[in-house]
Design a protein around this nucleic acid. Structure first.
Length: 545
RNA sequence: GGGCCGAUAGCUCAGUCAGGGAGAGCGACGGCCUCUUAAGCCGUCGGUCGGGGGUUCAAAUCCCCCUCGGCCCGCCA
């Protein structure tokens, strides 16, 4: 069998997507090459689900780069049954809410039914499945990844799956024999089909007869185990057509490959040991076709916790984009897929700085070893789409958070210029692009309430100082009013003023932070105050407003 | 119980596929900027490469055993 862990590691390639593309091209597929991913629309799509989109996207881009036409398909496995109620849900605007915000009782009565048969708890889409599929599509859109979303329910309903379902049932003896090599529970009575009960709508696994001539199965609606719980069947005995049900996942997956002509598919490490080995064998021995090139990605954790829609440990792409630029998020997914990675909002500034370095390496503005240089060369254009001629001006993320202390654009520009992060002759377009990071970094500082989370105090804080400090502040105000000093002059003057008034330097700085930020510490005061409106600074130093 | 992936500096990670110099960023420490004050620059320190054994002239890299994190071997993805 093909070890999915080996694909992408067997050749010397700086960027894993190129190694996967090598593997795909070695099989000489016909255009369009089909890259697939997919998930079950079981709940709020989170950052982990993005693997199914982004990993495939990079493989697709690597193939396109070699002149191939590529179709990236994303199956929403919406015929799967609702097995448990997730702890959290999200409306179409990404407002994440607890289960108590919807009619959980009504939702609970739908356990056992396919997602596309469950009413949308928010009432805005055709079904539960359609609702969360819509969020998956929005996720891909937000990251600028073009995908063809294919509903698995639609594959059944429209007849596109007829041939595969028929084929599976026709050769169910062989299916049984193959699956039994992988699963102990497959016995002589096993029929690889779940029928939808015409009375209660549950998917039942008890198939009592198969009539391929008529294209129907006979079933009894029995209890189904769902984790610790049991979903009760209604006991009804009836018949269903081959479109009124579904294949078990281990067959549905290879059936998708056959129906959609899939050439390559990334999947999570959970599949690597379970459904991949059996699926690959089913593809060969039942569908008589080569399985796609596999590629495994490891899972992410969120601040050390497993991402899970059902438990509610989720971070959505919508959330992530509040504090990261699209390119940075896309960059995150260029990293080695075989490593478990922790996504920690607290230290997201590191990721951004890493992206900035990666970008600088691409533009040759930064030394890098051969491997890193080649990786930047390959991956960067896929991350940003179309690299600009010149390296974009980037403000360091942490400093961008600092600029977020004020909403005044001129002040932001002034501070960025004086800090040397933006050249004095930068045009408006460059400024806008560079400042795009500021609100995101500001959102991050607020969210994590870290050391960059401070705001310019709009109203004068109510603080009192001893006589010496007050006199020093007064002197400083006079100096600012008289000299309108630049950053370094002012910074120096603060020291001098403190000395002259016999005030410990630290105390005078602290007084400044209290007056302007309502904090006891802060950024270097000179560069911070110098670009501000002189009148305002003087007034505040005199505690007059 | 069987199997798979991962573990490299305080932190985040590259390097492991094809054996030969242990690396980057951040942090810490020191220095520069008339200046202890969260941004800039220069420099320094920092690692039994998870542990043990083996192969080899040579092992982070190959082999075996073990520990830890995660996953699979039921369902679901």
């Amino acid at each position: 069998m093909t070890d999915p862990y080996e694909v992408g590691t067997g050749t010397r390639r700086a960027f894993w997507a190129d190694a996967v593309a090598d593997e795909v091209l070695a099989r000489d597929p016909t255009d369009p090459v089909v890259v697939k991913g997919g998930v079950s629309p079981s709940g709020v799509p989170h950052l982990g689900h993005v693997n199914e989109v982004m990993r495939g996207h990079y493989v697709a881009e690597a193939l396109r780069d070699r002149g191939r036409e590529v179709r990236q398909v994303f199956t929403t496995d919406d015929r799967d049954r609702l097995r448990a109620l997730p702890r959290t849900l999200a409306d179409l605007e990404w407002n994440v809410v607890g289960l108590e915000a919807v009619d959980a009782g009504a939702l609970g009565r739908n356990l056992g039914r396919p997602y596309t048969d469950v009413p949308d708890p928010f009432g805005c889409c055709d079904s539960y499945g359609a609702h969360f599929t819509a969020l998956l599509e929005r996720t891909a859109d937000a990251l600028d990844v073009p995908i063809d979303v294919v509903s698995t329910t639609d594959l059944y309903d429209s007849g596109q799956f007829d041939a595969q379902v028929h084929h599976v049932l026709e050769h169910r003896e062989r299916v049984r024999a193959v699956l039994a090599r992988f699963q102990d529970t497959v016995d002589d009575d096993y029929v690889p089909f779940f029928a939808r009960c015409e009375v209660c709508g549950h998917l039942t696994e008890t198939i009592t007869d198969v009539d391929l001539e008529a294209g129907t199965v006979a079933y009894v609606c029995e209890d189904v185990a769902a984790g610790e719980d049991v979903i009760e069947g209604c006991g009804h005995a009836g018949t269903a057509t081959l479109r009124e049900g579904k294949l078990p996942w281990r067959l549905e997956w290879p059936a998708q490959w056959a129906a959609l002509g899939v050439d390559v598919e990334p999947f999570g490490k959970d599949h690597a040991e379970g459904s991949w080995p059996s699926g690959e064998t089913i593809a060969r021995e039942v569908f008589d076709r080569a399985p796609p090139v596999p590629m495994v990605y490891e899972w992410f954790t969120l601040a050390g916790e497993a991402l899970s829609s059902s438990s509610g440990t989720v971070i959505t792409v919508d959330e992530v984009l509040e504090f990261l630029e699209v390119a940075v998020v896309r960059y995150f997914f260029t990293k080695n897929p075989s490593k478990q990675r922790d996504f920690d909002v607290d230290s997201i500034d590191r990721l951004v700085e890493e992206f900035d370095r990666f970008e600088a390496v691409y533009y040759g503005d930064r030394e890098a070893d051969e491997m890193a240089a080649e990786r930047a060369d390959r991956a960067y254009p896929m991350v940003v789409g179309e690299p600009a001629d010149d390296r974009p001006v980037r403000i360091p993320y942490a400093f961008a958070a600092v600029l977020g202390m004020t909403d005044n654009r001129e002040l932001r520009v002034e501070m960025a210029r004086r800090s040397g992060h933006i050249s004095p002759d930068a045009d408006e377009a460059t400024l806008d692009a560079a400042l795009e990071r500021v609100p995101r970094a500001r959102a991050w500082a607020e969210r994590t309430d870290n050391e960059f989370n401070y705001r310019l105090a709009e109203a004068r804080p109510d603080v009192a100082f001893d006589a010496a400090t007050a006199a020093a502040l007064e002197a400083l105000a006079d100096f600012v009013e008289r000299a309108d000093p630049d950053a370094e002059t002012l910074q120096g003057e603060i020291y001098e003023t403190a000395k002259r008034h016999d005030v410990p330097v630290g105390d005078l700085f602290e007084a400044g932070y209290r007056l302007f930020l309502e904090e006891t510490e802060g950024p270097r005061l000179g560069p911070f105050l110098a670009p501000m409106d002189t009148e305002f600074v003087v007034r505040r130093l005199r505690r007059a407003g």
